[in-house]
């Protein structure tokens, strides 16, 4: 009988709280912990405005984006039997970004539900296309390669479309690397239910996915219909990745790293992996955002760049273990 995951989960959520507090206190100007507490308790003043008006929405967005991307990553890695899968490496984020940018350029300002719907549609389409490109069999190397090719096509179109519109240039970096600088509470309130729905889909499909991964026959014997399970899994990926792209652009590597750490902490078992990946993704996003704000004060590095700098070596490490491993 595997250990109960309750204790590790509790510890992880405590760490999320710590990182959250750090995200409120650190930034272009550091604010003392006492003042942060005061602001939360209802004090007024410039420090409180920064904490509540700017940093709180941003930290909340980081928790949400990190958790959602981590879930998308776990589901993708399990489905593809490929530890190198991640919504950005497989082109899913890029597909969502392309859909939203094309929408923005053709309709101008869009209502938020439409943005979310476009991101969702783009993510789903990208997931299907890349999966078809990679084909069946051993996708260890094919999936990241096909994903990189697909992502670079999407991103060059995004770049072209955005740059041809002089007014839209200020959002260029947001759509190229992802950033939390534009996250606000209204957007968060709209997208959190979408992301949560995705997480629920993932949890609901977890048992079915595991049975299918063992073998189709076993799945059938357990009363699992492959079509239903795959649809649910795709829904989970597209909802979580789409919601996070709609809020923060195509942020990478959380979906790659969080599941790897989660496996170390809670072992195998998809539902517990999902539950552990959410806080881990949140911690990664919070820490990366804080590093981005502190590293080159007074200007800041977008979270996407910080994550790429730390995530790319992690990818190389995982890839090395895979290529070297038993063949």
């Amino acid at each position: 009988m595997p250990r109960s995951p309750i204790l590790p989960l509790l510890i992880l959520w405590c760490l999320v709280t710590l990182a959250f507090a750090a995200a409120l206190a650190l930034g272009a100007q550091d604010i003392a912990p006492g003042q942060v507490m005061g602001a939360i308790m209802g004090d007024r003043g410039p420090a409180a405005d920064v904490v509540l008006g700017l940093r709180l929405p941003r930290a909340a967005a980081a928790v949400f984006v990190g958790g959602a991307l981590a879930v998308a990553g776990v589901v993708m890695q399990t489905l593809a039997r490929n530890p190198l899968a991640d919504p950005s490496l497989t082109g899913v984020n890029a597909g969502a970004a392309l859909a939203v940018v094309l929408g923005l350029m053709s309709f101008g300002v869009m209502p938020r539900p439409l943005v979310a719907a476009l991101a969702f549609g783009g993510a789903a389409a990208a997931a299907i296309i890349v999966r078809l490109l990679a084909g069946h069999g051993d996708t260890t190397l094919r999936l990241p390669l096909a994903g990189a090719a697909f992502a670079s096509i999407c991103m060059s179109i995004v770049a072209l479309v955005v740059l041809l519109n002089p007014e839209a240039r200020n959002i260029y970096r947001f759509w190229m690397v992802g950033s939390l600088a534009m996250a606000d509470l209204q957007g968060l309130a709209m997208l959190v239910p979408v992301g949560l729905l995705g997480v629920l889909c993932a949890l609901f499909a977890a048992r079915g996915i595991e049975a299918l991964m063992l073998s189709d026959e076993l799945g059938a014997a357990l009363g699992v219909s492959p079509g239903q399970v795959l649809t649910l899994a795709l829904l989970a990926i597209a909802l979580t990745a789409g919601a996070s792209v709609a809020l923060a652009g195509p942020v990478g590597f959380i979906g790659l790293i969080a599941p790897h750490i989660a496996r170390r902490i809670v072992g195998s078992g998809l539902s517990r992996l999902i539950l552990a990946s959410v806080p881990l993704g949140a911690i990664l996003a919070l820490v990366a955002d804080v590093i981005g704000r502190v590293a080159i004060r007074p200007s800041e590095l977008p979270i996407g760049i910080v994550l790429a700098i730390f995530g790319a070596p992690a990818f190389m490490l995982f890839a090395r273990q895979l290529v070297r491993g038993p063949k």
Partner: peptide
């Protein structure tokens, strides 16, 4: 195979580091 896979990572790393340097 290994060169292509590792290179994918190196390319992302170097691009991000370049962008960070320039932004700074």
């Amino acid at each position: 195979r290994a060169a292509v896979l590792q290179g994918l990572g190196l390319a992302i790393l170097c691009s991000a580091a370049t962008e960070a340097l320039i932004l700074r």
